[in-house]
Amino acid sequence: MGAQNRLTERTIANPAPAFVAGALLLLIGVGALLGWLRQPRELRLDPPAVADLDQFRRMPNGISGTPPESYFALGKPYETDAYNLSQGKRLYTWFDCATCHGDGRGGAGPSFLDGWWLYGPEMVSIVASIRDGRPHGMPAFRSRMTIEQIWQLAGYVQTIGSYTPKIAAPSRNDNEHTRPAENRGPAIILFDEGPLGAHPDQGPSP
């Protein structure tokens, strides 16, 4: 009886190492596949595609508009691509956006995180604001940045003010975090409805 028991135990115990090894191999395989599938970096956009980025159409009132067709063909890289968002974050520092907009919560300039977009949350509006400037102190960066850099920066600004967190995130802060990180949708957390009627031109909610 005892011998019989041992035999049964062994028969049951035996498949375990093979299963563990198999699962481990599978895990390693999945890891390798995910590493291989990482988002490719488009480091050099062809000059005609870059030139096309300047050719977006705007509504007559300067708010919103349509990006060029090629932008959709590229897969909206400045909104969804982690590398471009990281470069946008670098440009936010390099071009001293924080002097007026702080960490995104505003200062001398408007906040990106209170949920209210003065000119709408579309990429085209943000790109136009950076490229051409806006009344009340927003300077034009047309002669200081290339159009590709402007799209990268606009993508970053849109990400921190986005109403839904994006899957792609820029690199982490080197300094202390002063607000929720970009990939957590800081604008959702810091949304400020403001006093009733503060933004009558934009309706009751953003």
Binding site: L43, R44, P47, V50, Q87, R90, M145, T146, E148, Q149
Partner: peptide, 16 residues
């Protein structure tokens, strides 16, 4: 003329 071809990924943009 083309910094991203000579040194891909560097932070100098291609200025038209």
């Amino acid at each position: 003329a083309d910094p991203q071809t000579l040194k891909p990924g560097n932070n100098m943009p291609m200025v038209p």
